[in-house]
């Protein structure tokens, strides 16, 4: 399951003198949900537009299914479903009429595809309501229906829960999760809402001011950011052996020769320090870290938090 489906190599987009995306290299693995996390204006949408061949990169390349999307777009793009920015449809048509146009252009052979896609997002089939009369939530649902109608292998969803009510958000979240777990679809989604990303994504890319600051699996980020006792000692190898033998836990991680993270918070700090000192290990620093993913985001973006 480590096959890379979407790969960007040093992707860069410059508007005038403004670098919107800089040297961005992301890797979306098959059957996984990749969350691109960043503040508004961080470069998420521009990145997705370049991936979908909607915007020409200033430099770098996008590979999907191992092929350059600029050269082989005609072959690659039909295998992708997308939702970029706000939902864009013909206001004088109903939801069904809108989807029928896109189904016809995509050459969707299944006559039930439009009805099925509308059913999945909870919109009525052959309703008389025009798109112009839709609420923001209905528009977003229609955009999701359009993205999934042709049963694509890959979904690229830019802020998919924007404008949805809390129930709608939960429904869409469950739906995206099911697409990945039950149907093995690969999903690249973006959000500025950290909780959304942390609830959905398997892998996370953190982007700020067009630069990819970190690309990790959620499990790894969780490991980095869960509560732990931070230890700065003279010898981590000996410390690890002592913790394992005397305190009976292996729930720790050696960072380097002098720092170690102990995730078992049941261990009393004073007993731990005493044990280390009695065994000739110098202890330079001991404290408990209470980092959340948001703290981590703040730290690595060097600024304010995210919703």
């Amino acid at each position: 399951m480590n096959e890379i489906i979407i790969e960007t190599n040093h992707l860069t987009k410059v508007y005038g003198t403004q670098k919107s995306v800089a040297d961005l290299s992301i890797h979306v693995r098959k059957g996984r949900i990749y969350g691109l996390l960043g503040r508004n204006g961080a470069g998420k949408t521009t990145t997705m537009r370049m991936i979908l061949n909607l915007t020409t990169p200033t430099a770098g390349e996008v590979k999907i299914f191992g092929e350059d999307v600029r050269k082989n777009g005609k072959r690659i793009l039909p295998r992708i479903g997308s939702l970029i920015e706000s939902p864009g449809f013909y206001p004088n048509l109903t939801g069904t009429e809108n989807l029928r146009i896109f189904a016809r252009l995509r050459g969707v052979p299944n006559r039930q595809a439009v009805e099925n896609a509308l059913g999945v997002v909870g919109l009525p089939y052959q309703d008389k309501k025009l798109f112009a009369e839709y609420s923001m939530g209905m528009k977003q649902r229609l955009a999701i229906a359009n993205a999934i109608m042709h049963d694509p292998e890959v979904l690229i969803l830019d802020e998919p829960v924007n404008g949805l009510d809390p129930i709608g958000i939960a429904e869409v979240r469950d739906f995206i999760k099911r697409l990945s777990t039950e149907q093995g679809k690969t999903v690249l989604l973006s959000s500025h809402i950290l909780s959304e990303i942390s609830m959905l994504a398997d892998d996370i890319g953190i982007i700020d001011q067009g630069v990819l600051l970190e690309e990790e699996s959620l499990a790894e980020l969780d490991r980095k950011n869960s509560r732990y006792i931070h230890l700065a000692v003279s010898d981590t190898a000996q410390t690890a052996r002592l913790i394992e033998q005397s305190l009976g836990t292996t729930n720790f991680h050696i960072e380097d020769d002098h720092t170690l993270r102990l995730y078992d918070l049941d261990i009393a700090t004073n007993a731990l320090v005493r044990l280390l000192v009695e065994n000739g290990i110098e202890v330079f620093e001991v404290h408990t870290q209470n980092n959340t993913l948001e703290d981590y985001f703040k730290r690595i973006t060097g600024g304010e938090g995210i919703a």
Binding site: L54, G73, L77, S82, G88
Partner: peptide, 9 residues
Amino acid sequence: SLKNLLPIP
């Protein structure tokens, strides 16, 4: 809607 049409493609 152009962003829905061009990726069809």
